[in-house]
Design a protein around this nucleic acid. Sequence first.
DNA 1: GACCGTTGTCGAATCGCTTCGATCGTACGT
DNA 2: ACGTACGATCGAAGCGATTCGACAACGGTC
Lengths: 345, 345
Amino acid sequence: MATIGDVARAAGVSVSTVSYVLSGKRTISGPTRDRVQRAIAELGYRPHAGARALASSRSNVIALMVPFRPGINVQIIMQFVGGVVTTAREHDHDVLVLTQDDAQGIDRVAASSTADALIVMDIESDDARLPALRALALPSILIGVPDDTTGLSCVDLDFAGAGRLAVRELAGHGHRRLVLVGASQDRLDHRANYAVRMRQGVLEQAAAAGVEAAVVPAEPTFSGGAAALDAVLAANPGTTGLVVHNEAALGGLLARAAERGLRVPDDLSIVAVSPAELAAALPVPVSIIEVPGERIGRIAVEMVMARLSGEELAETRLVSPAFTDHGSVTAPAGAPAPAPGAVRP
Amino acid sequence: MATIGDVARAAGVSVSTVSYVLSGKRTISGPTRDRVQRAIAELGYRPHAGARALASSRSNVIALMVPFRPGINVQIIMQFVGGVVTTAREHDHDVLVLTQDDAQGIDRVAASSTADALIVMDIESDDARLPALRALALPSILIGVPDDTTGLSCVDLDFAGAGRLAVRELAGHGHRRLVLVGASQDRLDHRANYAVRMRQGVLEQAAAAGVEAAVVPAEPTFSGGAAALDAVLAANPGTTGLVVHNEAALGGLLARAAERGLRVPDDLSIVAVSPAELAAALPVPVSIIEVPGERIGRIAVEMVMARLSGEELAETRLVSPAFTDHGSVTAPAGAPAPAPGAVRP
DNA sequence: GACCGTTGTCGAATCGCTTCGATCGTACGT
DNA sequence: ACGTACGATCGAAGCGATTCGACAACGGTC
């Protein structure tokens, strides 16, 4: 491999001149710049990443901690990772993957100057990694919002807002009895923050709109969804509107609804909170509030870059939820059609 | 951050001694070693990754090229990535993620000594990246087997074997008319090697066993699966055995079967080729031939390590398929029960 | 014409580690 | 008692970049 010295020789300039052409940190005359760039192209020169990192104390790498725990929503994780990697490249950075259970991963990557910044996914309300992250010299961005965000940068979908939006959507169509089919008991026990916030948003808005709302957990499986629907109908007869925040259970839930002779949306209106792609995997179209994985990934990287250039302090950013109508929400049978505009009370 | 010099001073030895304690490349006496290690622990010293890479021309990083194209089977990708990352850590390496469409990614990572080796997923029979990979100075491992493997290291499930195994399983139970519901037309057009090899295995074994076999492509969606079943029954009446190599379509296919009053396995025996976890997402248990994503990831990394230590030349490794019975294969209605042992003719 | 501020370029120090050759004891064989 | 090995350690030379201070050349000012 050619080194910067080879380039300098080929262009008839000094090493430092080549470096300045590359970084643009000092003015170099047009002709010299051209000669250097020609030499670079001819030799196919690329700066040695390690040497650059050593001299500049910048690795141009972002570490990304990804959960590989089974049962996790893989779809959204991949979208997110895709967003991070793509955006990082746009800023001339690469992405290093760490696993959730690589306990020393954070420390190792930071102490060895392997990465310039850290993005951590799947944050729980009271995440065990928070102390380590707060103590970190590197900027870190969390996906998810813990209880105490002081000194931390976070991004996520506004799940509370999504819960409210879903309820507004249903209540606006005249539904009075709603149920949130949410995360599994396991996730709730782990205090997955999205589940907590979602529930809170749903209950809050239901109270505000004067409609009933209950919460039923569901295992993230086909049979979990079926069981959840049974549980909903057993415990909350008269339920006409469902908010489903559990992609894996949705298929089973819809199948059981069909078995029981309930039609969507005629007998049961449904809003799902999930990645947009899920639709393709379902027997009937379902209106959704999208969890914009890729977009959140983009934002996370942009926050990293802002922090690296010293522009920005820690902040929390919540992406506004948006409702996409696929026709799975209508007025419940026997209810008066809602007045126009009533959908957004 | 502490440097190796700080450690040396704290331990009262020279810098090189510390280095040798760390690498074990020269003998160091017990007492000295202890003192050095104590100093390392006390200072929380970690070698600077860049400096190490510069001096040793080893980055301890493996680059992994991941497809983020929509419609891909995310489940298996994640399993695979998990296997790679976990195994890499066991060998003290980190993993850098490249996207499929980062055309210069391979070159960049190689020329800048960012990574020591490259793992490339989702290889097509005649993949556009093959020339670049062959020309590469770094060892590279392909997931998937192109037409021409000279000079390349590949690993994958033995899809041809999986096809044969599926057919043996069905034919052994007495099925005479089989259909492979395979990859989408789009994937076939791209000559995805797994789809090609799968089809070949199925047809080969069907011929050998003297049973009929047809191939029907399916879009990787719920409705694609439903449509595929309709197509199967329209074009191949009397089909009693299905091999489904298209996870995303399986749900729709099963739903349509139920709609048409076909019961699994009584009217229709099914073998799916898919990751093991899929089962949770289906309404009925389906026997599968597992695509062992994590295991393939492990093997890929182990091949990388072997290549890096110069032990091994390029080779292709195919993982043997295994059948996991979940009861979705029985003798077709009206057929004589197969003789015991006939399942593996 | 002496002085000064730019502009463009260079040389050398530096980043933190690995590794090769040299050195210094000490134990061993004879 | 002497040469020889060998084990343990050190010093110094890189590895390939970045970056700072120095400085020559040049045009403009008084």
